[in-house]
Computed example of a mutant assay.
Amino acid sequence: MGHFPPALPPRPVYREPNPISAGLLLSGIGATAVWFALFGSLGRDLMSYAWWTVAAAISAWVVAAFLTLFGDRGVAVGVAATSGLGLATAVGLVAERWITTNDWPLW
């Protein structure tokens, strides 16, 4: 009879202890969309809208960092992604105004 090598131990299975679910991701997206709508509605022109959006983005990123460390990471991903999209929208509007009028609208 042949000699067989000893059996190897089973391969480890790595699983996320707290998987991200679609419901939690969508709740982060929805809450951040409302947050940006509330902050954006405080602006009366492009300059104030852009600065309020920057304030909303910074505060949302602080919340996303906190949720990443101590809360639910699914909600944190939704908050971070939506705040990036909201800030990109404001930057796009500022850039469009700057390009078309050759006047920097934030001062």
Rank of each mutant, 00 (worst) to 15 (best):
M1D: 14
M1A: 15
H3P: 11
H3V: 14
F4P: 15
P5R: 08
P5F: 08
P6S: 12
P6M: 09
A7L: 10
L8Q: 11
P9V: 03
P10M: 01
R11T: 11
R11S: 08
P12A: 06
Y14W: 13
Y14N: 13
Y14D: 11
E16A: 12
P17C: 05
P17D: 07
N18M: 09
G23I: 11
G23Q: 14
G23A: 13
L24V: 09
L25M: 10
L26W: 12
L26T: 12
L26F: 15
S27V: 14
S27L: 14
S27R: 15
G28P: 13
G28W: 03
I29M: 06
G30H: 07
G30N: 09
G30C: 10
A31W: 08
A31M: 14
T32H: 07
A33Q: 10
V34Q: 11
W35E: 08
W35F: 10
A37Y: 08
A37M: 09
F39P: 03
L42T: 05
L42C: 07
G43W: 02
R44N: 08
R44P: 02
D45L: 04
M47F: 00
M47H: 02
S48P: 00
S48M: 00
S48A: 02
A50Q: 00
A50L: 00
W51E: 01
W51Y: 07
W52C: 07
W52Q: 04
W52A: 03
W52F: 11
T53G: 03
A55D: 03
A56P: 01
A56V: 00
A57K: 01
I58W: 05
A60W: 00
A60R: 01
W61L: 08
V63A: 11
A64W: 02
A64D: 01
A65G: 03
A65E: 02
F66H: 05
L67Q: 04
L67A: 03
L67S: 03
T68N: 10
T68V: 01
F70P: 04
G74A: 08
G74E: 05
G74N: 06
G74C: 07
V75R: 15
A76T: 06
V77Y: 04
V79D: 06
A80I: 00
T82N: 08
T82P: 06
T82G: 06
S83W: 00
S83C: 04
G84R: 02
G84Q: 05
G86W: 04
L87K: 04
A88R: 12
T89A: 13
A90F: 12
V91G: 09
G92E: 10
L93T: 12
L93Q: 14
V94C: 10
E96R: 15
E96F: 14
W98K: 14
W98T: 15
W98L: 15
I99N: 13
T100E: 14
T101F: 12
W104L: 15
W104P: 13
W107T: 15
